[in-house]
C-alpha cells in the first residue's frame, strides 16, 4: 500500500476551489443585490469590487471577473470583500465573494478564516461540507501548519459530515504531496474506520485515483520507450 503512495502524482484539486463561483453563476438570475448598491460602492477600486461581485462570471468583459481584478485592487480589497461577505443584504452573493477572498493570502484573511471556520464547525447540520473544505484549503495556502492542526483536531473530535470532510481532505493531500507522513496518517485513519459506507467510499476513491495516476504516468513516458519495445516485439 505504502509503495503506491510514492507513485502518486498530483491530482487536481482546483475543482473544489472553483466550485463556489461556478455554482453561484447558475443562480445568478435569482440574485438581487441591495437597492441602490451602485451608489454605495467602496471607493478606491477600479472597477468597483461590488460590480465584479454582482456581474462576475456573467459572460461580460473579462476585466470584470474577480480573478482578473484582484491584482489591480491589491490586499485592500480583502476588507471590502469581508464586509460584503458578512453583510446580510449581500447574503446571496457569499459564495462568489468568498471566491474573491481566497485570491488573497493576508493575516486579515487568516483571521477571517479562523472566525468563519469556527462558525462553520458549530453548524451541526453541516449541509455544506464543501464550505469547510474551502476554508481548510485556503488556510493551507496561508498557514499550512494551522490547516494541519485543523485536520488533526477535526479527525479526532468531529463526527458525521465534518469528519468525512477531514478524511477526504487527508486523502487528497496524500495524493497531492506524496508525503509519507500524510500517507501514513491516511492509512491509520483507514484502518481505524469500521466497515461501512465511508470506508467503502474512501477505498473506492483511492483505487480510482491510483488507476488515474498510472494512466497519466504513461503520458509522461518518452515515446521511444514504447517504439523500441514494439520494435523488439516485431523482431
Amino acid at each position: 500500500m505504502r509503495g503506491l503512495w510514492y507513485s502518486a502524482v498530483v491530482v487536481a484539486f482546483a475543482g473544489i476551489l472553483c466550485a463556489p463561483p461556478c455554482a453561484a453563476d447558475y443562480r445568478e438570475e435569482t440574485l438581487v443585490p441591495p437597492i441602490g448598491w451602485e451608489k454605495q460602492v467602496s471607493p478606491g477600486f477600479e472597477p468597483p469590487v461590488e460590480y465584479t461581485v454582482v456581474y462576475a462570471g456573467a459572460g461580460l468583459e473579462p476585466s470584470l471577473t474577480i480573478k482578473d481584478c484582484a491584482p489591480k485592487w491589491g490586499p485592500d480589497a480583502v476588507r471590502v470583500l469581508i464586509e460584503l461577505y458578512r453583510n446580510p443584504e449581500w447574503a446571496g452573493f457569499q459564495e462568489r465573494i468568498l471566491s474573491g477572498i481566497v485570491l488573497f493570502s493576508t493575516p486579515e484573511v487568516k483571521t477571517f478564516l479562523e472566525e468563519e471556520y469556527a462558525q462553520e464547525l458549530k453548524k451541526t447540520d453541516a449541509k455544506k461540507p464543501a464550505q469547510l473544505m474551502v476554508f481548510l484549503s485556503l488556510m493551507r495556502k496561508i498557514d499550512p501548519d494551522r490547516a494541519k492542526q485543523w485536520v488533526d483536531e477535526g479527525l479526532k473530535d468531529s463526527t458525521g459530515p465534518h469528519f468525512q470532510t477531514f478524511v477526504f481532505d487527508l486523502r487528497d493531500r496524500a495524493f497531492q504531496t506524496h508525503n509519507p507522513d500524510v500517507q501514513a496518517q491516511l492509512t491509520q485513519v483507514l484502518n481505524s474506520l469500521p466497515e461501512g459506507e465511508l470506508r467503502k467510499a474512501l477505498l473506492a476513491s483511492i483505487e480510482a485515483m491510483m488507476a488515474n495516476q498510472r494512466t497519466e504516468q504513461r503520458t509522461n513516458e518518452p515515446m521511444r520507450v514504447i517504439l523500441e519495445k514494439e520494435k523488439g516485439i516485431s523482431r
Binding site: G36, E38, K39, V41, P47, P48, Y51
Partner: peptide, 17 residues
C-alpha cells in the same frame, strides 16, 4: 450603465430607495 449609476433608477426613473 456607468459605474455609480443605479440601474433601477435609470430604468424606472424612480429613486433607488
Amino acid at each position: 450603465f456607468a459605474y455609480g449609476v443605479s440601474v433601477w433608477e435609470a430604468v424606472t426613473g424612480r429613486p433607488a430607495t
